[in-house]
Amino acid sequence: MSHDQAAILEVRGLHKSFGSLEVLKGVDLVVRPRELVFVIGPSGSGKSTLLRCCNRLEEPNAGSIRIEGVDILAPRVDINAVRQRIGMVFQSFNLYPHLNALGNVTLALRKVAGKPREQAEAAAMQALARVGLAEKAKSYPNELSGGQQQRVAIARAIALEPVVMLFDEPTSALDPELVGSVLAVMRELRESGMTMVVVSHEMRFARSAADRVIFMDHGRILEEGPPAQLFNAPDHPRIREFIASIEH
């Protein structure tokens, strides 16, 4: 099968079922370098499952997934090495509560990337500085606000120098006044050239930062296009309704 040499992430014919419930019914998605792709759609449409298949937190039933051209579903692939290159940020942050911010970021740098302590800490401090939290390195997650926790989670992922970052509703669990700080970090990442796939309903951010928006419905991509087109003049009335409902 031919595939897109220039793509960072290339998903073809992805199917995923949980028991008899078919959640992804053949999804195709190509993300090119430095692209920011936004994924929207009603709850339960399969957005999280799509992201989680991309680093095999869920095992797809059929289809192919390539990262920089390498088939990550191949039987002999070293999934832990692959995951280092795919950063993931979760709605609920999932920071390790028993480690401070620095420890959260250095863990994989030391155990997976195999860096010695000093190098790992230097890289971690750089990542924390990038999300504006260098001075919180010694703080534990329960001493940080939700926005700060999510920024540490972003630092934990970017410290491994991934080729693509997956965000699953990174601001949905945050108080409204804390959302901006996380979006600012994501904007900075985008400007520095990071390739990103973002599941989120932050429309204002999508309008100004996304290259492409994908609308998912019932396990399929219903429509995709530049934000202006998808938000202002979608082909499907269903999408117009959905956007009206979240922009209230």
């Binding site: 795919i86 390790y96 994989a108 155990k111």
Partner: peptide, 18 residues
């Protein structure tokens, strides 16, 4: 321990044992 802890760790490339 919440499942999300396990998933976060695996997503950074840590093995199941690590």
């Amino acid at each position: 321990v919440p499942r999300g802890q396990y998933e976060a760790a695996r997503s950074t490339g840590l093995s199941a044992l690590q």
